[in-house]
Amino acid sequence: MIWWQYIIPQHSLSKLMFRFARLENIWLKNKFTHWFVKSYQVNLSEAVREKVEDYQHFNDFFTRALKPEARKIGSANIVCPVDGTVSQSGEISHATIFQAKNHYYTVSALLGGDYRADQFESGYFSTIYLSPKDYHRIHMPFDGKLVSMDYIPGDLFSVNKATAEGVDNLFARNERVVCYFQTQFGLCAFVLVGAIFVGSMQTVWEGQINPPYQKKVQNFDYTNQNIELKKGEEMGRFNMGSTIVMLMPNQESKLNLSAGQIVRMGESLI
């Protein structure tokens, strides 16, 4: 049942969660985080800080860093950018992306009508969902030079499987941040999609993008800055979990991903 998502105050609830996740009341923070770890079976042994008590607040725990040995960066040209579950992955056909059964959306809609959508008339996409238990930092799947970034306002529907199968244009209607990189494969786009209680995203070069929530598209141009990230380096993070959509132009090797597949950051994709 997803009807309730149409009537609840999505942004107001997300603002409340944003504030709650940053409360520094020790008792409340520890109690809630212990409950979260147990309920979602979070593997804290992978984290740099293994004790709940060592985190300043819940969001500090949620965006936790992992030990270097917890994720090895593969030798392939393309590695997985996040921990998560593959929602869908495949070819971009006639500038259209498969969302879920009987649901499709256009590249242009996903990118907010940006003129660069034409460069993804064909190519490959991968949509990866980050569940509450997952590691929530996003890393570069290959070397890239940052070209620009767009913040696109929108809804904050859930992005789980049931919602993806029931809400038209889900990833193209939710609030999102689009990062464009020039790479060895050509221009690539990484779309960080927000969701209910997940209305906050940040990047390593700009910091927190939202909130505040804006009503207009915001454009950030980095063509005159030399911002380059290597494969495996952190690109950004979700303050609470969500979904990333990766767009790539045509290439010789297809991404080795299939719907429902569990993936880990750093593993080889080709």
Rank of each mutant, 00 (worst) to 15 (best):
Q225I: 04
D168K: 11
R137E: 09
G207T: 10
I209K: 11
T127P: 00
Y115I: 11
I138H: 01
G232M: 10
K161L: 04
T183H: 03
E175V: 02
G199M: 08
Y222D: 07
S148E: 14
N169P: 00
P153T: 06
Q184L: 08
T163G: 01
Y213W: 15
M201D: 07
G207H: 13
F171M: 07
L192Y: 15
S148H: 04
G123H: 09
Y115Q: 15
R173L: 09
G236K: 05
A162H: 11
T223N: 11
L187V: 11
C179K: 04
F190N: 03
L156N: 06
Q208G: 01
S158M: 07
S122M: 06
V191Y: 02
N239S: 12
F125V: 05
M235E: 07
L170Q: 04
N224W: 03
Y115G: 01
L187A: 08
K145C: 05
N226E: 15
K230F: 08
G194A: 15
H139N: 03
Y135W: 14
K215N: 13
L146N: 04
E175L: 09
F142N: 02
F181Q: 03
E234C: 10
A164Q: 01
G123S: 12
V191T: 14
D114P: 01
V178G: 01
Q184E: 15
R237C: 10
E233G: 02
Y115H: 15
K230A: 15
G113S: 05
P212F: 09
Q119C: 00
R116H: 06
A117C: 05
R237Q: 14
D155G: 01
F185G: 00
H136I: 05
N226P: 00
K230S: 08
M140T: 04
S158L: 05
T223W: 00
V178Y: 01
S122E: 10
P132A: 05
Y222E: 07
H136K: 03
L229Q: 04
T203W: 05
S158W: 00
Y115L: 12
Q119D: 13
L187T: 09
R176I: 03
A164C: 04
F190A: 12
W205Y: 15
Y213Q: 13
F220E: 08
D118C: 13
G194T: 13
L170W: 06
V177E: 06
N169R: 11
E175Q: 13
F197A: 02
L229G: 02
G232F: 14
L146S: 06
D134P: 01
S148L: 07
L146M: 05
S126P: 01
T223K: 14
Y124P: 00
Y124F: 15
L156T: 02
E228Y: 12
D155W: 06
F238Q: 07
V178N: 10
Y222P: 00
M149H: 02
E175F: 12
R173G: 03
V193F: 12
S158N: 11
G236Y: 05
G236W: 07
R176H: 02
D155Y: 12
H139C: 06
D143S: 08
P141C: 07
G199F: 08
G154V: 07
Q184W: 00
V147G: 00
F238H: 08
Y115P: 00
N174E: 13
Q208R: 14
F120M: 05
Y129D: 00
G123W: 04
D155N: 03
E206Y: 09
E175I: 13
M201P: 00
A162E: 10
L146C: 06
Y213F: 15
V167M: 12
A195K: 04
F181G: 07
D114F: 08
Q218Y: 08
